[in-house]
Design a protein around this nucleic acid. Sequence first.
DNA 1: GAGTGGTCTAGACCACAGA
DNA 2: CTGTGGTCTAGACCACTCG
Lengths: 248, 248
Amino acid sequence: MKPTYREIAETLRAAIRSGAHAPGDTLPSESVLASQFGVSRSLVNKALQLLTAEGLVRPRQGDGTRVTWLPPLSRSGARYQRNVREQGGAKGAFDAEIRALGLEPQHEITVTRITAPANIADQLGETGAEVVCRSRRLLASGIPVSLVTSYIPAVIAAGTAFEEPAPAIVGGVKSLYATLGYPQVEAHERISVRLPTDEEAGKLEISTERSVFDILHVGCTADGRAVEVTTTVTPTNYLIIESTFPLA
Amino acid sequence: MKPTYREIAETLRAAIRSGAHAPGDTLPSESVLASQFGVSRSLVNKALQLLTAEGLVRPRQGDGTRVTWLPPLSRSGARYQRNVREQGGAKGAFDAEIRALGLEPQHEITVTRITAPANIADQLGETGAEVVCRSRRLLASGIPVSLVTSYIPAVIAAGTAFEEPAPAIVGGVKSLYATLGYPQVEAHERISVRLPTDEEAGKLEISTERSVFDILHVGCTADGRAVEVTTTVTPTNYLIIESTFPLA
DNA sequence: GAGTGGTCTAGACCACAGA
DNA sequence: CTGTGGTCTAGACCACTCG
């Protein structure tokens, strides 16, 4: 026999998936649910923590517990490359994806100039180097879905469109690199899953128990020099990664 | 101020990472920890649940709570392809990876013949088709790290080495396909993260709260026919996925 | 049998949001 | 102010593993 809090979680999960509790709805309060299920409030709280970690629901102190549900996006390696050329970086692909789901894409961008943090400097092969840091927060109808941060060596980015806080770069990131004399020919990616930092959890408005993808993308020129490092942090349930590749 | 249970989790996490509690050690019991930290046992239990979900620790009823920690493996797209040719499927790459960490690789394999489940049949493009199902459980020094299941259409696999319950296929999976007249030239992969089913959690000996990678690999011949579907289920903290690809 | 973790309760106090 | 979720306690009973 399954523990009660798991049964309760399943009942609520089913109610949400079936649409009985639609996205945006506020669930009955924990006290009410407790009496409905005939259990203590602690148990209901434990059940709701499961749903929170799954991203089905978002409780807020003082306010109630709201249903927050988003179908997963997809990130195709092949499509990614194509869109990068056609539009302004990941923005184009993201917009299309979100719109296809009937949601409204939004962007926030901040551009700063900093010395590269250790892990980024490692990838760029230049410790202590100055970089332009383009930090974007992508939202779908007000729900934060992704934190994308690009690091570009200042010697490349200084005085270019990379330093403009525009949501997209006209003509595309890759072509701007080419124009500046640094055409990218190869990319390296490292995908891991971890728990978010408190800062990331705050910006993504998720529970610290909800795991996130941490995708590191490094773009290199023909001589093997890394000229672009981009990290993407996304709650795991918002993303499915797809790719197609030839077998040698 | 952080909640107490989070502080406790951090203290224990640090103690584990520093080696004060080495892998294999049994932690002090919850009652002992409770009195050490001056809190109720419920709180210690909650703190340990965090570490359990992270995979740092594995509690067992009746027995104590043991430290189970494994550094992440890596799964490189490029290396994967090379090893597939040189050795017997993922086995070779897995063995090398595990041995490099000073651990002992182990394998369990069961081969059955079934009608393809719906999602697999979708990929193979043949509903109701009979398939040979090679189901492997990979362990590192007794710790289950991966469930790998391959589905091969029975019309291809019947009477071949695919039906042998050997841990590896001599000469490699890909070359056997080529020998049988189905050379694979392209692969499609879909990576998602989800919570394990109860069955998977059991086989992997993990908490049902610990998220897993679900990797779907489809191998196709030149005419676009899918001839191999392999699913890999691995706790997220055991795996880092790396790949290198050219930019068009 | 003794000790472990798993579950659950009843109640408490707090921080917070909204009317 | 009221009601919400967040945290925490003290204690209970159970299922389990081990000697």
